[in-house]
Simulated assay, not measured.
Amino acid sequence: MSRIERLEGAVVVVTGASGGVGRATAVEFGRRGASVALLARGEAGLEAAAADVRAAGGRALTVPVDVADPHAVEAAAERVVSEWGRIDVWVNCAFSSVFAEFGRIAPEEFRRTTEVTYLGFVYGTMAALRRMRPAGRGVIVQIGSALAYRGIPLQSAYCGAKHAIVGFTESVRTELLHDHSAVAITMVHLPAMNTPQFRWLLSRLPDQAQPVPPIFQPEVAARTIVQAAVRPRRAYWVGASTVKAIIGNRLIPGLLDRYLARTGYASQQTGEPRPADQPANLWEPADRDVDHGAHGPFDDRAKARSAQAWASRNRRALGAAGAAVAAAALGAVGGRAARR
């Protein structure tokens, strides 16, 4: 697989970079000294995110783009190359969706969610590979979710798109392996995150939407995403809740069906009425004129660290340490036996 030797000076593209996980990821790359191209629709959010990247120590380029438009994505990639000469890392993170029962989602809303959340990844991957294959290097990072493996109620459009990304990415990976390509493609699957999406996605829920606890800050995801760019592997899982959801669905999917049917509605709502004038970014960006930042409204409940994510990022070191401890223990046992 390809390796990015150092992030300082690397050219990174992040879609969905104006808010949430995309923004936190762009800032984390900036902190490592990367040049970060921020792709999103909301101009106010983009400009504020670029300022955050520069403050962290990186270079920033804002590129307003709707990732559902393949020609616009291609033009955005071309602009990055014309400005900075190449693309080393491409992070697909942009999405939109609808909080509603399936029967209350209009066909055009489902289509639009799929175009942004699934086809946006397809078009981003196409644009990245057009530059990376000839260069013989590069890493594509797909931002997935526990919901890519375990569907839940009220999010059929999002779950469907995330499931599709897994199948698409696996197919592309096998083609890269067949060609002995040095380009790597990896996935990072996330738990519930404290992002602005719960205040700007189209919602038909009676109450305000919320992530299913436990909730993590977007910086938890960002650290693993940056790690995935430097040490790409097939997939990273962030958070113990992600591990439980994916493994649980493999072992007891029917039981989870019934559990989520019983609990999935209430756990995704705060109990507070949803404002009638809440913005909906499905068709227009919610941060065109107002910056919403990286964090959502759940700072008081969100975790800033994940022991599981840390262990996942450092599994080689932990494995080596475990082997050293085991060897020392065996040596001690052998020494005692020899003295008997």
Rank of each mutant, 00 (worst) to 15 (best):
S156H: 07
C159H: 03
I225C: 09
L177G: 13
P196I: 06
R133H: 12
R204T: 12
V188F: 00
L154G: 06
T117C: 12
I225R: 01
R204N: 09
A182S: 14
P206H: 12
I185Q: 03
G120P: 01
R150W: 14
A128Y: 05
R199F: 09
G144S: 07
G120I: 02
A240V: 15
M193W: 09
C159G: 05
F110T: 10
P232K: 04
L201G: 11
A222M: 04
A146N: 13
T224S: 13
A222G: 03
P206Y: 06
F216A: 01
P214L: 02
G167S: 13
V188C: 00
R131Y: 10
D207W: 14
Q142H: 11
T195W: 04
A209L: 02
T224M: 13
G239W: 02
P211M: 09
E115H: 05
P153K: 11
E108D: 15
I165P: 01
A184M: 08
Y149G: 01
T117D: 10
G124K: 01
V172N: 07
T186W: 03
F121P: 09
A228C: 07
H180G: 15
I143W: 06
G138I: 06
F168M: 09
R231L: 11
V122T: 05
A222H: 01
Q210H: 10
A148H: 03
G136A: 04
R137E: 07
R130G: 13
S171N: 12
V116K: 00
L176T: 05
T224K: 10
H178M: 15
R133S: 13
A240W: 13
A192Y: 08
V212D: 15
E115W: 07
V230R: 12
G138C: 09
V226N: 02
E170T: 11
R199P: 10
V166L: 06
C159Y: 03
I152S: 11
V139R: 00
M193Q: 13
L154F: 13
R199I: 12
R199L: 15
T114A: 15
A221L: 04
T125D: 07
V116E: 02
E108G: 00
M193F: 14
E219L: 04
P206N: 12
E170K: 13
F216V: 03
T114I: 14
H180D: 15
G160H: 06
K162Q: 05
V139L: 03
H180T: 14
V116N: 00
S181L: 09
R173P: 02
P153S: 10
